[in-house]
Design a protein around this nucleic acid. Structure first.
Length: 644
RNA sequence: GCCGAUGUAGCUCAGUCGGUAGAGCAACUGAUUCGUAAUCAGUAGGUCACCAGUUCAAGUCUGGUCAUCGGCUCCA
């Protein structure tokens, strides 16, 4: 029998009979400990099952179950085990669609008339446990495409047939476990006994292929880990994340409320939330002024004609609310601020010498969102964009984009966000503007990112029809990625509104327009902020920086005086002078996440001081009110000013 | 919008088989005057999301509407 040479990285090649399985070969090549951890193997760079037989000289790299790839294989196999459990329980009343591993686990989409009830959920889980205990192997086989189409067709698995018809290959691989055969690329675990820690999490509807015109399937989500400890850790983290949910904290900390009577997706900012927002807005305005922006204010409605000119009626109408009639003329709520800024541009003639013009506005817009999409502060129907439009000449584009990115990151960093995913979206199939312009703008965006040393992902064809863009996404504590910042070059609106400036050559030219938002929407940004800090805002953002708590009524007048004094120093101070025990008041202040508690008893009253307790529980020595005010000022300056 | 779940006091939740609504916290009143995460007692608080229907009787059963939650889709 022919022999082949097989080796592992950093190992000596050994000779094996041709056709030996990867698993067999590894038995000789690696230690038992490594083998126990090995779920699959990369053979000459291709991931395969341990049961794959080797026909040529091979370099085997074991895939450990605790590697990212190993975990993915584990979860993918978990999806198969779940599908087998469902098949065993419900037989042919269920059709299977797809079941991949995802970031935190796996899912499988099923087509079944009846929805899965919570009790059935448990039955599926129990059945899965049985399958795991039965150590059922995953058996790989191959078929020609035509055979596979025939095979799944006879079983009535129409989704699999549809998938097959999109696969370009001649041959496809199948995995069999018990009597369940699934179309699958693999690799898989050797058998189901590896699945030691899994949990089904929720059922949800989802359209076949994400297309709402196609059938609604039932998706069961679950997660799986190599051991119980990791699973428990993950479940614990889910609980922790729930505690950080901005909707919960928004209620607990009295930041905002959403009420049926007002309407879904419409935010009421309570005093504390409004204070937080004011702090953000003030910082934002100051920072923009420093960076050469001027502030604008514009109305919330405009004539429908404006939206016709801008193209919103053609391209954005499904997001806009119906017109209202005023003196027989139709007006519409604004979904964007740009046409108004253009209106201001057009109130004057402009010369190339004026450029760049940088105009910003905290502009409140209204957009229709489907009922099922609304989510706390993150997705609403009325929100305030931290919008800006920059008008410039082509030769200024590079610098302007660079400056925007610079300001963007600077502001995000001040708020404590240092991790983002950056995307550069290029020209889509349907677009306006000249190829030259597109290339100029795309290159400018790219150069700015590179000059800033930022890594980004290219999103080919994902630009807006009017120009390329950069999106910066922030990840929140629940692992969801939120788009906040966006920088878009626009060739469309200057054209539509016939914007011009007089060039050096005395001729009329069209300015380039850049739209950008850094926080995106204040609502969403505050939502992300709440989750980021778990409601414990840094001192400069805390709606209430300090709370005076007295010990007995004997200090009432001293506390009142102290309160007035600290307010004059500009400290956001509140007082809790109720006839309650100190413990009780501290507890309440703590739960409201107030950064400083100012304890006042007889000692402090006599010495004219306060005893400062930090949110962390740390106690500072008694100090004068001035010293406390100074301490607050320094801490805030460091947060904002230090980076400036 | 679609699939599923949920909606009871300001908040968190209990309410069995259809028999007429309950707790803790918060609020209010009183007592207590207390040194770093809940002092004690009392009082009040409800169109059981809303609208129909079945029934002698509906928080509970049926239908519809609205909203919320988990997803699909979409996006700041």
């Amino acid at each position: 029998m022919a022999e082949i040479l097989v080796k592992i990285p950093e190992g000596e090649p050994l000779s094996f009979p041709q056709g030996v399985t990867a698993g067999e070969a590894l038995k000789t090549l690696v230690s038992g400990k490594v083998r126990k951890q090995t779920v699959a193997v990369r053979s000459n760079g291709v991931s395969v099952d341990l049961s794959a037989s080797l026909s040529v000289d091979s370099l085997l790299e074991p895939i450990s179950v605790d590697s990212a790839e190993g975990l993915e294989i584990l979860r993918h196999s978990a999806a198969h085990v779940m599908a087998l459990a469902v098949r065993q329980l419900y037989g042919n009343e269920v059709k299977v669609a797809i079941g991949p591993a995802i970031e935190d686990g796996f899912y499988y989409d099923f087509d079944r008339k009846e929805p899965f009830s919570p009790e059935e959920f448990e039955r599926i889980e129990t059945k899965m446990t049985e399958i795991v205990a039965a150590r059922m192997p995953f058996v790989r086989s191959e078929m020609s495409l035509a055979e596979a189409v025939d095979y799944f067709g006879r079983q009535g698995e129409s989704y699999k047939v549809e998938l097959l018809q999109e696969i370009g290959a001649d041959r496809v691989s199948l995995y069999q476990q018990g009597d369940f055969v699934d179309l699958c690329r693999g690799p898989h675990l050797p058998d189901s006994s590896w699945l030691k820690a899994f949990k089904l999490l929720r059922v949800a509807g989802s359209y076949w292929r994400g297309d709402e015109k196609r059938p609604m399937l039932q998706r069961i989500y679950g997660t799986a880990f190599f051991d119980k400890k990791d699973l428990n850790h993950y479940l614990h983290q889910l609980e922790e994340a729930k505690k950080r949910d901005h909707r919960r904290l928004g209620k607990e900390l009295d930041l905002f409320t959403i009420q049926d009577q007002i309407g879904p997706g419409l935010i009421l900012w309570q005093p504390r939330g409004a204070q937080l927002r004011r702090l953000i807005e003030d910082y934002w305005k100051d920072e923009h002024y420093r960076h050469g922006y001027e502030l604008l204010y514009t109305p919330h409605i405009a004539r429908q004609d404006l939206w016709r000119t801008s193209g919103h009626l053609d391209f954005y109408s499904e997001n806009m609310y119906s017109p209202m009639e005023i003196d027989e003329v139709k007006y519409q709520l604004k979904p964007m601020n740009c046409p108004f800024h253009i209106g201001i541009y057009k109130s004057h003639r402009h010369s190339y010498r004026e450029f760049p013009i940088r105009w910003c506005e905290l502009g409140t817009v209204y957009r229709y969102e489907r009922a099922g999409a609304l989510h706390g502060l993150m997705r609403v129907r009325g929100f305030t964009q931290d919008d800006a439009h920059i008008f410039c000449r082509p030769d200024q584009l590079d610098e302007e984009i660079y400056n925007i990115i610079d300001l963007n990151l600077h502001i995000l960093q001040t708020f404590g966000f240092v991790q983002y995913d950056i995307y550069l979206s290029t020209r889509p199939e349907k677009y306006v503007g000249s190829d030259d312009h597109w290339q100029l703008a795309t290159e400018a965006l790219k150069r700015a990112l590179e000059k800033k040393g930022l890594s980004y992902q290219l999103d080919p064809g994902e630009g807006v029809f009017y120009g390329p863009k950069i999106d910066i996404k922030i990840k929140d504590q629940l692992g969801r990625s939120w788009q906040c910042s966006t920088i878009q070059v626009d060739f469309n609106l200057p054209e539509r509104f016939e914007m011009t400036y007089t060039g050096e050559d005395s001729k009329e030219h069209q300015p380039i327009m850049i739209h950008r938002a850094l926080m995106g929407s204040l609502e969403r940004f505050v939502g992300v902020l709440i989750e980021h800090y778990a409601g414990a805002f840094p001192l400069w953002l805390a709606p209430e920086q300090a709370r005076i708590v007295n010990i007995t009524d004997d200090q009432l007048s001293y506390c009142e005086a102290l309160y007035t004094r600290l307010r004059k120093f500009g400290i956001r101070v509140e007082k809790d002078l109720r006839n309650e025990k100190l413990n009780y008041k501290i507890r309440e202040a703590q739960m409201m996440k107030v950064p400083y508690m100012l304890v006042v008893g007889e000692r402090e009253k006599e010495q004219g001081t306060v005893t400062v307790r930090r949110r962390s529980g740390e106690n500072l020595p008694p100090m004068s009110p001035q010293d406390f005010a100074e301490l607050v000022r320094i801490e805030c300056d460091e947060a904002i000013g230090g980076i400036r």
